[in-house]
């Protein structure tokens, strides 16, 4: 390691920016390293709206979970939960019902461990290490089977994570597989990077995307139609469909927030059998 941070033991790679740590920093979190912050500053310089996109995403996550709890959903599978940063799903869900179940899943073992220590003492919120590209290993994980009642609706959250899954890894197939064991009334929650509205914006966005090529998690940008196509027939889109994050059932209080075209979101409900 070229640089010593004293409190960082061997084994954590602080030379390569990590998507979850970058996201944490973008939201104002402190669980990040210099390399992540520097990466974010470069991304922001190229694509000044990046911070707002991250924030719009996170705000949508909060609204989505509140909306779902209002509709009686009490089980949440948050895949790609990242660093336990501001506005966690369990905080929102358990505000509505202290016994709401939340299972966090992340591919990064350190994020998983941090979530674990954060969740100590919370019997209904847990975390496992898992890879979205292997949905069965998540669905049939012992802890998941233990925590969830699959005869009741489950909300599967893939927030700001599907754009890290290339077409070759069959994101539609992954969502189909995740949806299969769920009862009707279950939901899929998706947020995904979309193309910017203007040619200049798209050019800037493309440069930022190229920046992500250097991280372990390159990004795929998909249009609203492409995002909609990822959702299978077993699910129907909830109004207002695939829209900008800031346009999905906005909180009247947030009406003044700037619209973010590149954060596409949707919630879909599993049809009645």
């Amino acid at each position: 390691m070229a640089e010593s941070y004293g409190w960082v033991p061997e084994g954590v790679d602080i030379e390569v920016p990590d998507a979850s740590r970058v996201y944490d920093y973008a939201l104002g979190g402190v669980h990040n390293f210099a390399v992540d912050r520097e990466f974010w500053h470069r991304a922001e310089k190229i694509f000044p709206d990046a911070r707002l996109v991250a924030r719009a995403n996170r705000a949508f996550l909060g609204r989505a979970v509140r909306w779902l709890t209002a509709r009686g959903v009490r089980q949440f599978l948050d895949i790609g939960s990242g660093i336990p940063t501001l506005g966690n799903v369990h905080e929102v869900a358990q505000e509505a019902d202290p016994e709401a179940r939340v299972m966090y899943v992340d591919i990064d073992p350190i994020a998983v461990q941090q979530s674990r220590s954060l969740l100590t003492g919370n019997p209904y919120a847990r975390v496992i290490e898992g890879d979205l590209r292997e949905p069965d290993s998540i669905l049939y994980h012992r802890d998941v089977l233990d925590l969830f009642d699959f005869s009741e609706p489950v909300a599967v959250l893939t927030v700001a994570v599907l754009h890290f899954v290339p077409g070759a890894a069959d994101p539609a197939g992954i969502l189909r597989r995740l949806g299969e064991p769920l009862v009707s009334g279950s939901h899929l929650v998706i947020s995904h990077l979309g193309p910017d509205a203007t040619p200049e914006g798209r050019a800037a966005q493309e440069r930022a995307r190229q920046l992500y090529e250097k991280t372990p998690t390159p990004v795929v940008i998909r249009t609203a139609e492409q995002v909609a196509a990822l959702i299978g027939d077993e699910f129907e889109l909830v109004e207002p469909g695939v829209v900008r994050a800031t346009d999905w059932r906005p909180d009247p209080d947030e009406a003044g927030d700037p619209s973010q075209p590149t954060a596409l979101v949707a919630i879909a409900r599993k049809r009645d059998a």
Binding site: V30, H31, P109, I110, Q113, S117
Partner: peptide, 12 residues
Amino acid sequence: AAEDINRSEKIH
């Protein structure tokens, strides 16, 4: 947060 990330890493 630094302590936390440190501990998490150690446990990991």
